[in-house]
Design a protein around this nucleic acid. Structure first.
Lengths: 350, 350
DNA sequence: TTTGGCACTCGATGAGTGAGAGTGCTAATC
DNA sequence: GATTAGCACTCTCACTCATCGAGTGCCAAA
């Protein structure tokens, strides 16, 4: 979109104003608050132009203008300048994240909490897609007769486990042997290339256990491996959306929280988003208003980026907020949280 | 509270009416809908009496009556009759719970989802208090140099694990020996009697690892054991509260969801409730309105019961709903979900 | 103890009104 | 050709006011 400089200024000013006041911006207000040295009539003409171009809208005839989805998009793509957070805000985020020590899961949860608190919106984290990471260890541990714990260790130090049932009279020693054999078979293979056949091959016949029982154990091991790839989406701070004027009508609020409650839907959309822009990894994915194809998110924006777990394994972190948000600030916040998270993960992993 | 029979009838009718209509109940409505064969004036007198006794309230002078917290309490304690669910409802719940197969965690989550869906309120589950359960196994598994997985197995078949850091040059074999020694030391002990000293005793000096490093490993093992006792509260269906007329004012809704977002607070209160009525295990704990000492739950009720994991280990399951609820029905629903959950857990554990 | 009658209270509803903010358009001006 | 002043017009919002109806409390009679 090619706008002459003044139109850019006007759009910029209207977005800024609307975001901070949540009130349609009129030509007079624009002069008062932004020191344009032209008359209100001139601005009215500019605004009418911007409206024809689809960048602004009017809620009704005698109100000021608000940015359209396209207007926000233009603002995000070409107008805004992302500035770093103040020292104070940085310190708060740093402190928050550092205090959520412990395991990886706690750390990510802590980052999500921090992000939601900082932005006042819903934060979203998604466990890394592990399809491409490879398996480094597989252990099966007898818990009691008939029950074993399968521990799957992946590259990037990710550990997953699953409690499975096995035939009752399989012994400690047998499980140990089986898991060693499986491990030998599949170590180093990317997760998405492991099939039940890969798991089983080279095992049958080499054991003193009847095939049918062995198959059961193998299947459980295989299921545990596949489950490691489960995509976990975690949303935090849903209630914060209720305090926003954007969702102060009960209807909208109900609908939004209802949609958010369906983790699976959000996870699916995240996947879709990622497929759309595979090119620029490590940068931001932004979806504004109706660009979001999910029902009920017309007044929202998604902003996500990736965090790094090493070995190229990446998860997602970001926010879901009202489309009327301070994009530049929110992006800084996400960016800073992400950096801190990356750092802490590195420390955990050595 | 000793009420003459007609007062009982009147209170019963008012609670029923108010719960289903959410409108203050007047003397006329009472006659129309409940076929009392006395005049409205008589009922007015009865209602005035019940109000003096603190069982009813008036929102304002010219409105009907609504039950007070004390009124609901009387209703719950002496008036209502709990009736079994219809076959249809039973079937739906059964089906729902059976479809959430997999690990214990999935099962409990599934039960919570089912309960929330059936009642339309927030469901609440809490992992069992494990203080009194004893340790049956402890294994440490080397993941990579410097990292080990501690697997803690408790009575009732509960398995917990934690990824810990250990000194870099401790070997596979050493970890194996240490975990065996610890296991020997504490197997059979109740969780709350295990201290760092119990874990360490009889180990020092008996190994070729320097004490300071050994201590680090022991401490991590101890931390993993202690963490097994972590009380996990899971709330599901918060958004459903928004659809209830009871919380249709934005202010109340915001406050309620804000409070619910603090899992820790709810967990703490649950503990407190349990301490108060240790006598009648396996039955219901009900808290109505202001009986709940947490801020912001004046219009809510908690109803919880316990589910059984075997060996006397019990977790909690229940709902948080508006105090204006069909208590008898909700109790039946909780009861039925609990029974199904108990059954499924038994199947998982054999 | 119950009942009919009556005056009174109070919230909800809806119509009417005026103020205020903002627009688009036209004609004059730079 | 771009800018501006002026003006008629539109639409929302807040406020007032009157009315309606459901429900109460109380009193006197049955």
């Amino acid at each position: 979109m090619d706008l002459d400089p003044r139109k850019k200024e006007v759009l910029h000013a209207i977005v800024d104003d609307y975001v901070s006041t949540f009130e349609p911006v009129g030509s007079k207000a624009l002069i008062e608050r932004h020191g344009f040295d032209v008359s209100s009539a001139t601005l009215r003409n500019e605004m009418a132009d911007l409206e024809h171009m689809g960048l602004l809208e009017k809620p009704h005839t005698s109100a000021g203008r608000i940015p359209s989805d396209k207007g926000y998009r233009e603002y995000v793509d070409s107008l805004m300048k992302v500035e770093p957070l103040s020292k104070k805000e940085q310190a708060k985020i740093e402190e928050n994240i550092k205090s959520s020590v412990g395991e990886l899961g706690d750390l990510i949860k802590g980052a999500a909490d921090t992000l939601s608190q900082a932005t006042g919106f819903v934060s979203l984290t998604c466990s890394p897609r592990l399809k491409k990471s490879y398996l480094t260890q597989l252990k099966m541990l007898m818990i009691e007769p008939g029950k074993a714990l399968v521990v799957v260790v992946l590259s990037a130090g990710v550990v997953k486990d699953k409690l499975v049932r096995i035939p009752n009279f399989i012994t400690d020693k047998q499980i140990f042997d089986i898991s060693n054999a499986i491990e030998k078979n599949i170590t180093g293979k990317p997760l998405d290339e492991i099939t039940l056949i890969t798991v089983s091959s080279a095992l049958k016949g080499g054991s003193d256990i009847p095939d049918s029982l062995l198959n059961q154990v193998l299947y459980e091991a295989y299921a545990a491996i596949k489950q490691a790839d489960r995509m976990d989406v975690y949303l935090e701070g849903e209630h914060r959306m209720l305090s926003l004027p954007d969702f102060s009508s009960m209807g909208r609020a109900t609908q939004l929280l209802g949609s958010l409650a369906d983790d699976g839907m959000v996870a699916g959309y995240l996947n879709e988003m990622e497929a759309q822009e595979k090119h620029n990894q490590d940068s931001y994915m932004i979806r504004i208003g109706q660009e979001i194809t999910l029902e009920g998110f017309d007044d929202c924006s998604f902003i996500t980026t990736t965090y790094n777990m090493g070995d190229g394994v990446q998860g997602n972190i970001g926010v879901i907020g009202p489309k009327r948000m301070e994009y530049s600030k929110v992006i800084s916040q996400i960016d800073f949280v992400k950096k801190n998270l990356d750092e802490q993960i590195k420390i955990i992993n050595e």
